[in-house]
Write a protein that binds this DNA or RNA. Structure first.
Lengths: 256, 256
DNA sequence: TCAAAAATCTCATAATGAGAGATTTTGTTG
DNA sequence: CAACAAAATCTCTCATTATGAGATTTTTGA
């Protein structure tokens, strides 16, 4: 994980920005990354010139406008967004809810698209904000499909959370619970992420039948009965499988 | 502009992605960038591991999820977004319009925040999509405040566009028109970017009184009279100056 | 199962990043 | 406005390390 060459070291500068620390002074960056002064400034210059960073007088260094530009491009190229949004609209048309597609990458869950048909959508996880792994239907819908060797360490690392939402006391118990989720084809969570909200999620697969995303509907708990949840679950599952199928389709190459 | 060292060469890989070309094959990247095969694959590995790129089976290489994550952070750290959005809400509450804040960087204009109070907002320039320089109130509101040496080459490069919207036939004429904009404090454009839409924009300044952004209200041409446009212009100008002032404020450092 | 394409590895060589310390630039104070 | 302090850049040598031709391995598609 530690940068071994100068190319990774430049990129490592971008890695230190987080929700907890959005702004850095050069001095702090030197300390954090262990780079010498000239080296750090060299890196900063390159990253600023490319627009990845910008520095304001009073707040040190922050992420820059190139990031914004690239995110726009991502929205136009990400197959999950392109194929997902139409289905999300279907779901929000059918139910008064928030519907999202979330990508699973590097042990993180990241919302990439969301639609809403409620007045005040209760989305504390908008596009780009990583979600917790131990709680919520989304995480579970994906974990249930991961191969064992990948799954077990994940469970162990999040056992406290998993236990607190009632998935089981030991790793073995959790595995059993996840097996049920796998069988059902979708996961349900009652107020695990947002109090009062029910989450219903189903996994999306890549062309190797490996889960790489999840479709989730979040709906106010007061609006649904158990039977309706099953109905929505089936719908969410259908949508997730549709998106999976579209993803695996060979698409037209852009004009040569 | 051409990469001179390996650090810039890695980043140059990210630069080739554009709205016209969202996906690249390694083969094409080699050709485009002139890198040898092992070198390119080395770069790709690093960029993929960091999440800046991802490769899908059928579409070659595209921008990756780390970009999405960083854009989220940008939305939470960009002073223009943080200070701008409340004012945009003011504007959209007062008029049935779309209100935006756009950053000026590297000869580009980039929307960073937008709010809308119309049914079907006509925004062909959402967050992250660079706008044309030669047309529209936004570009003009900023250009009018640029120092001459910076401005003149810009005008020359976009003279065709500038002429077509009636700013003047020669560079000197355009300069004269811009001087008027500068005096007025805001720029107005009738259907230059979107047919039927009036754009009203005023510049935002950094702490050096250099324009670094613009506030723009877009409103249906049928909804406003000349007098109202002046009124809105004054409001937009006020908001732009407010944002300028907030930007220049020393902010609390995040807890040490 | 096998052939073609894609990606990775090996290794000698030259290129080029690293960093200590000096220097310049920028911002802030009386 | 001057003089100081802090921030950023420059210089230059040295050793590290990125490079690419070609071979090799892995993956993909038939």
């Amino acid at each position: 994980m530690k940068p071994t060459n100068s190319l990774e070291r430049v990129l490592a500068v971008l890695e230190v920005f987080s929700e907890e620390r959005l702004e850095w002074t050069p001095e702090d960056l030197m300390r954090e990354l262990g780079y010498s002064r000239p080296t750090l400034y060299r890196y900063l210059k390159i990253l600023k010139d490319a627009g990845f960073l910008m520095s304001t007088r009073y707040s040190g260094v922050t992420l820059g406008p190139k990031v914004v530009e690239m995110d726009y491009l991502t929205r136009r190229s990400d197959p999950l967004v392109l194929h997902g949004v139409p289905y999300l609209k279907e779901l929000t048309a059918a139910y008064s809810c928030t519907a999202m597609v979330l990508r699973w990458y590097g042990n993180k869950i990241l919302c990439v698209a969301s639609e809403s048909s409620t007045k005040n959508p209760i989305s504390s996880y908008p596009r780009g904000r990583p979600m917790p792994l131990g709680r919520g239907a989304i995480a579970r819908s994906i974990m249930a499909l991961l191969p064992r060797p990948r799954l077990v360490p994940l469970i162990e690392r999040n056992l406290a959370d998993l236990r607190s939402v009632g998935l089981g006391d030991t790793a073995a118990d959790v595995l059993k619970s996840l097996k049920k989720v796998r069988k059902a084809g979708f996961a349900v969570a009652y107020g695990e992420v947002t109090p009062g909200a029910v989450g219903i999620a189903a996994p999306v697969f890549d062309d190797r039948h490996y889960p790489n995303a999840s479709v989730c509907v979040t709906i106010a708990g007061t609006l649904v009965t158990g039977a309706q949840i099953d109905e929505i679950g089936a719908e969410v599952r259908r949508v997730a499988l549709q998106i999976s199928a579209n993803q695996a389709t060979v698409r037209q190459k852009s004009d040569a």
